[in-house]
Design a protein around this nucleic acid. Structure first.
Lengths: 281, 281
DNA sequence: GATTAAGTATCGCATTGTGATACAAAGTTT
DNA sequence: AAACTTTGTATCACAATGCGATACTTAATC
């Protein structure tokens, strides 16, 4: 388990997206409050803790004690954090869920994809996911769960690195090459498992193959025991806007059975979604 | 469709939760940024628009033009809003989904309930939901979707008034009476459908009945054509922490068939979740 | 092309958030 | 149980930061 010490690298606070946002009005307090909220996500992945004390928030958010307190208490007042009166520790508040609804209810792609994904999940009783690219990550936006899967793999909002996952590969493969290169360049190409490919030339060859095949199979690139497949959801102009991702879990699904069954299912599902897209998207 | 005019009542800005939060540090800018995000939710329900122009944000958030611009641009920079360069309109950004994950991944109840809910959904191939109380609303935290359902009813994060819905009723029925009364007192008891019960005495009688039966069936209280049922998830001390909710959609499910099939399913599912709770919850 | 509305940029003022410091309350060690 | 360490809370003078009236620019409408 990771131990945070004082001299640990603090989060990349001001390192914002590349877009030319210089000169745009910016309220620093707002940025800081989101640093606090993000601290809880870091806390979950790095410390395996669901609730954080004030000092932990300081370290994970990069704010000093006064600021951490101010923003944490502000977020409690607003309902986005909850505070245990006994332990004085903070945890994510249920009101956070509102923003998921706000985003999803207006998300046309998800609306179109949802029934198609549900049908697909019934074919082999598997998890089926819709992934979208954000920065260097693929974010799961819609997930059709399956009882045997682990809880973490059922939740929308999960992020995985694009470069070493099947959904990331098929999305990058079907977008302008310059943009894909930029994503790869911005990615931290580290080995998640011993099988993770980190050589850009090999990655680009994989992308080229994925583009011509119309799908990609990731063999233990990001999770040791899993093989998973993805196919691109394409806009009318051919650009990928998302990927249908179907994981094949270890004992049940071999590389061969994934190729034989899950690949056609993913390809077909992605095509059905693509065909349902209007030009508005 | 609701028309917002200048003299419309502006949102209840400072009307925060009753808790004694006076004197706690509070950063006003943070509150305002969330007013902007909330404006999008209002925009969806009241204007049926997924994206908003600056002037609309002003009206829906209660901020003046300068503030609306500052906070909107700040949120764009942070990725929580997106801005269409052509139309100059704002819409919810994909990064909002992160907070759903942050909340859910640390939510033990959902973790326990998820596989049980998935199994339940297969019995009659129905939607099955987990609801929790927040203020005067029941919030859907986990939803197992079904292909035929409408998109809006598949999304976690949806809020419905507690007083006139089955999940709200069973939760209120199984909590300290003083607290339940407080929720009713704070609720806006308006008729959602002609069948909505708004008389507090009748509502309390319904709650008493729900408590003794261990479930509640809502007959067209909040949606004209639907009958739905809910059963409480009870902590070890008997207090409700959530409700299992199963809607029975119109032509397929009658009041009788709901009583006969969905009620036992909801009760059993809720009991299985209750039995799985540890004392930590 | 005139008119209106919507969005963007500017800038002096004082409100608001800042963060060093001091204080209080838990948790540990001896 | 006293001494110490750590963590959380409260205070407050300063000035940086957000504020919002105003003016300007761009787009939409007639």
């Amino acid at each position: 388990m990771l131990e945070l010490s004082d001299d640990d690298a603090l989060p990349d606070l001001s390192a914002e997206a590349p877009a030319d946002r210089r000169g745009k009005p910016f309220v620093a307090s707002v940025g800081k409050c989101f640093q606090v909220l993000k601290a809880f996500r870091r806390g979950q992945t790095e410390l395996r803790q669901r609730d954080l004390g004030l000092t932990e928030i300081c370290k994970l958010s990069g704010l000093d004690k006064s600021a951490a307190q101010r923003f944490s208490e502000t977020l409690v007042t607003l309902g986005y954090l909850e505070k245990d009166p006994g332990t004085r520790r903070y945890r994510p508040g249920i009101a956070l869920i509102d923003f998921y609804y706000t985003f999803m209810v207006s998300h046309r792609l998800a609306q179109i994809a949802m029934p198609i994904l549900i049908e697909a999940s019934k074919v082999y009783d598997t998890t089926v996911n819709l992934c979208e690219l954000e920065g260097t990550d693929a974010i799961y936006t819609v997930r059709i769960p399956q009882a045997k899967a682990s809880y973490g793999t059922m939740l929308a909002g999960r992020r995985v690195p694009a470069f070493c996952t099947a959904p990331g590969t098929v999305i990058l493969a079907n977008m302008p090459e310059a943009e894909a290169d930029a994503v790869l360049a911005a990615s931290e190409l580290r080995k998640i498992t011993p099988h993770t490919v980190t050589d850009v030339a090999v990655l680009k060859a994989q992308m080229a193959e994925a583009r011509s095949l119309g799908y990609h199979v990731s063999d233990r690139q990001s999770q040791m025991h899993n093989v998973s497949t993805a196919a691109p959801v394409l806009r009318l102009d051919g650009r990928a806007v998302a990927a249908v991702h179907i994981p094949g879990y270890a004992p049940q699904w071999s590389l061969e059975s994934v190729q034989e069954k899950l690949v056609p299912l993913a390809v077909d599902t992605a095509r059905r979604i693509s065909d349902s897209l209007t030009e508005a998207m």
